[in-house]
C-alpha cells in the first residue's frame, strides 16, 4: 500500500493508504482529525471545508494521492495557530462573540470558508460587500445564516487589524 505524506496543521504526517481514498476519510477515519464534517461527500454542502496552502478546499473531493509532500493542509483544529498571537483565530472569536453555533455541525466548515473569503478580499484590497455572502455555499440546516454574516463582518475587521 502506498505511503502518503503531507503537512497537517503544521506537522508532517505519513499515512499508509490507497491513493484514491478521499482526504476527508484519511483525516477523519485514519488520523482521527474530526473537525471537518461530512454532509454530502460530493463538494456541495461544504461542511468539510478546510484549507490547502491557505485556500479553502473540500477534502471530500480530493484523492489523498494527489497531495504533494509539501502541501499544507489546515483543518479547524489548526486554524488558531495560523493567526498571530496566542488563543483563537479572530474569526473563531467573532463566532463565539456572536454566539453563532446552534447544533454546531456546519460551523467548522463555515469558519474555514469565512477566513478564506476574507483572505481573498485582503488580496484584492477591497472591503466585504453584501454580495460576497452569495459566494458562500456552506449549508447551515439550523439556519444560523444571519449570525454567520454578523460574525464574518466582525472577524473581517479583526483580521484587518492583526
Amino acid at each position: 500500500m502506498p505511503k502518503q505524506t503531507f503537512i497537517l496543521n503544521g506537522e508532517k504526517v505519513t499515512v499508509t493508504v490507497e491513493d484514491d481514498v478521499r482526504l476527508l476519510w484519511v483525516l477523519r477515519d485514519i488520523l482521527g482529525v474530526t473537525g471537518p464534517k461530512y454532509g454530502c461527500g460530493i463538494n456541495v454542502c461544504k461542511a468539510c471545508t478546510s484549507h490547502i496552502n491557505g485556500k479553502a478546499f473540500n477534502p471530500c473531493s480530493v484523492r489523498v494521492g494527489d497531495l504533494q509532500s509539501d502541501d499544507e493542509v489546515t483543518t479547524i483544529e489548526g486554524l488558531a495557530d495560523t493567526a498571530p498571537g496566542p488563543g483563537l483565530h479572530p474569526m473563531q472569536k467573532a463566532w463565539i462573540d456572536r454566539d453563532v453555533a446552534q447544533c454546531g455541525y456546519c460551523q467548522p466548515g463555515q469558519i474555514m470558508e469565512a477566513v478564506a473569503l476574507v483572505r481573498r478580499l485582503q488580496k484584492e484590497g477591497r472591503p466585504l460587500r453584501e454580495s460576497d455572502f452569495d459566494s458562500i455555499r456552506n449549508i447551515c440546516r439550523c439556519g444560523t445564516y444571519t449570525r454567520i454574516r454578523e460574525a464574518i463582518e466582525q472577524g473581517a475587521r479583526a483580521m484587518g487589524r492583526s
Binding site: R28, G32, T34, G35, P36, K37, Y38, T75, I76, E77, A80, L88, Q92, W95, I96, D99, V100, A101, G104, Y105, Q107, P108, I111
Partner: peptide, 20 residues
C-alpha cells in the same frame, strides 16, 4: 452564550461519527 460555543468553533465538539 451557549456553553458549547468554544468546542463548536474549534472542532472539539463531538458528534456520533467523531466518537472513537
Amino acid at each position: 452564550s451557549r456553553l458549547d460555543a468554544h468546542d463548536a468553533v474549534t472542532g472539539a465538539k463531538r458528534f456520533t461519527t467523531d466518537l472513537k
